[in-house]
Amino acid sequence: MSIRNKMHIERLLKSFCDWSEYDTIQLKHYFVFDDKVRGGMITLMKSEGCWSIHGKGEKYCDLSETILDEDDVKKLLWKHRAAVNRAIKELQENKQLILN
Rank of each mutant, 00 (worst) to 15 (best):
C61W: 11
F33A: 03
E90G: 08
K89T: 07
E58I: 10
G39F: 03
K36A: 08
G40S: 05
C50V: 15
K56P: 01
F33M: 05
K46W: 06
M45Q: 06
R38N: 10
H29V: 04
R86Y: 14
I53Q: 00
I3G: 01
F16I: 01
D35N: 07
G39Y: 04
S2H: 05
N100H: 12
F33K: 00
C17N: 07
A82P: 08
L27W: 14
S64I: 10
K59N: 10
E10D: 10
I98N: 12
E10I: 08
F31A: 03
R86M: 11
E70T: 06
L99V: 11
S15T: 14
G57R: 03
D69C: 11
K79C: 02
K75Q: 12
I53K: 01
K95S: 09
K6N: 04
S2Y: 04
Q92K: 13
M1T: 03
S64V: 11
W51P: 06
M41D: 10
T66A: 12
D18A: 07
K75H: 07
K89R: 09
L76H: 08
I88D: 02
R86V: 14
R86I: 12
M41R: 14
H80K: 08
F31H: 00
I42A: 06
K56M: 14
F33T: 04
F33G: 04
S20W: 05
K28L: 11
Y60W: 01
H54N: 07
D72T: 04
D35E: 04
G57Y: 00
K75E: 14
S47W: 06
S64G: 15
H54R: 11
E58C: 07
I9W: 03
Y60S: 01
M7R: 11
R11T: 09
V32P: 03
S52W: 00
N94H: 12
I88R: 11
R4S: 09
K28I: 08
N5S: 08
R11L: 13
D35G: 00
W51S: 06
S47R: 04
H80I: 07
D34H: 10
D34K: 13
N94Q: 13
E10Q: 06
I3E: 02
L27C: 13
K79H: 09
I9F: 02
K59R: 06
L13V: 03
S64H: 15
L63V: 15
K79V: 05
K6T: 08
L99Y: 13
S15M: 09
K56H: 12
T66V: 13
L99P: 07
Q26R: 14
T43E: 10
D71F: 10
S2D: 07
E10C: 02
L76G: 08
K79R: 09
G49K: 02
I53S: 03
R86W: 14
T24A: 14
M41V: 11
D71N: 14
E21Y: 15
K36R: 11
D34M: 09
R11I: 07
K59H: 07
D62C: 00
C61K: 15
N94W: 12
D72V: 02
E48I: 05
N5A: 02
Q92G: 05
D18W: 01
L44V: 00
A87C: 02
C17P: 04
L97T: 09
K95N: 11
K89D: 09
E48D: 14
S20L: 02
